[in-house]
Structure formats: structure tokens, C-alpha cells
């Protein structure tokens, strides 16, 4: 059976440190202002403590990627293992993918005049390594899973604060954060 690689974010372990996002910049040598992974604090209406629970998101490597459908030059490729790769050399910088992805995964690089996004470090995966962000997650909150064999029952596909896009069927899975009992002086 083929694989379907995906990210699993255990929000209960995530400390919002941005290590994953910086590990990505470090390995992929992104331009100074560019990020392929970003960490978004949950609103207080979702997690009642400000900036204490997070969504760490890059590309969700959707089943039916909006970017791929938006791209007029076929710069996006959906691989058999589920990874959505953007080929920068093909990109002509129309930004239609940027408009189309509900998760803000493709970002436009003004200097290089093309879009770019997370490739799940496909070259690392092919060498049997973990993506840089997963390798870089200091608490083990960010993990690589094979969705075809993933059976964790407490994982959700659409946590609050994350757009529900059934047609795209994003592959990322989430474990929701808990809260401590609080005694306030």
C-alpha cells in the first residue's frame, strides 16, 4: 500500500517556540523575510490563555490541493506519497496559488519573483530523514505520519482556528491542547 505522508501536530506538546519554523529556514536557506512554516497563536476564544496554544502550519499537502488547481503553469506536483511539491523554476509569479490556498502555505518571494512553499523536505524524506521542522521540534510535538496507517483516535483534522476545507482534504492532523487546573493568587 502506498504511503501518504502527513504532519501531525500534538498541540498539547507544542510550546509555540517557532523552532520548527526556524529549522525550516535554516535547512531550506530561505530568504530573510520568507517563511514556509509559521506558528499561529490560538485566539482566546478558542484557547482561553493568550499566546499559550498554537497552530504550527506549513503546507498541509492536501488530497486535492487548491494550489495545484490554481496554478496555470503546472508548477505544482502531487506525488504518489501525498507530498505536494512546488517547482520554483516553472513558476511565473501569478500568485494565484497564494490567493487560493486557505492555509497560506504558498508565499510570494518578491526578490526571486516566484511563489514558494514547504515541500515536506522531500529530498530528506527520500534520504530516509525527517523533514527539517519535525527533526527540529524540541518537544516532539510535530511529527511525520503515514496517513494511510494512522489510527490515532484523538487526532482531529479540523481544530478550531483552522479553516474547514473538506474538498481539499488537508492531510495535517492535530491533537488538541489541554489546560492545567489553575489556582490564582
Amino acid at each position: 500500500m502506498s504511503k501518504r505522508y502527513a504532519f501531525l501536530l500534538d498541540m498539547d506538546k507544542c510550546i509555540g517556540c517557532r523552532g520548527c519554523a526556524m529549522a525550516c529556514k535554516n535547512f531550506n536557506q530561505l530568504d530573510p523575510g520568507m517563511v514556509w512554516r509559521q506558528v499561529y497563536p490560538l485566539a482566546e476564544s478558542i484557547y482561553p490563555h493568550r499566546e499559550r496554544a498554537f497552530l504550527s502550519l506549513s503546507c498541509n499537502h492536501c488530497d486535492d490541493p487548491a494550489c495545484l488547481r490554481a496554478c496555470p503553469v503546472a508548477a505544482y506536483e502531487k506525488r504518489d506519497d501525498g507530498i505536494v511539491v512546488h517547482h520554483q523554476d516553472k513558476c511565473i509569479g501569478c500568485t494565484n496559488c497564494v490567493r487560493s490556498c486557505p492555509y497560506g502555505a504558498p508565499r510570494f518571494n518578491k526578490e526571486e519573483k516566484h511563489a514558494e512553499k514547504c515541500s515536506m523536505c522531500v529530498e530528506r524524506i527520500e534520504a530516509g530523514l525527517l523533514p527539517a521542522c519535525v527533526q527540529g521540534c524540541v518537544t516532539g510535538a510535530l511529527q511525520l505520519i503515514d496517513l494511510n496507517e494512522f489510527e490515532e483516535t484523538n487526532a482531529v483534522q479540523y481544530p478550531a482556528g483552522y479553516p474547514v476545507m473538506k474538498r481539499l482534504n488537508p492531510s495535517t492532523r492535530f491533537i488538541l491542547p489541554k489546560m492545567p487546573r489553575q489556582v490564582r493568587g
Binding site: R69, A70, P72, V73, K90, I92, G93, C94
Partner: peptide
């Protein structure tokens, strides 16, 4: 609208899926 306007013709390259 393109960052690389001279490559505009390449925008016809994905007729099978892209409405653009």
C-alpha cells in the same frame, strides 16, 4: 499581474486543471 510578465504564454500550460 505576473512577476515574470515575459513568461505569460506559459500560463496556458495547465489547461487540464487550472481555470486560470
Amino acid at each position: 499581474h505576473l512577476a515574470q510578465p515575459l513568461r505569460a504564454m506559459e500560463a496556458l500550460g495547465n489547461l487540464s486543471v487550472s481555470w486560470l
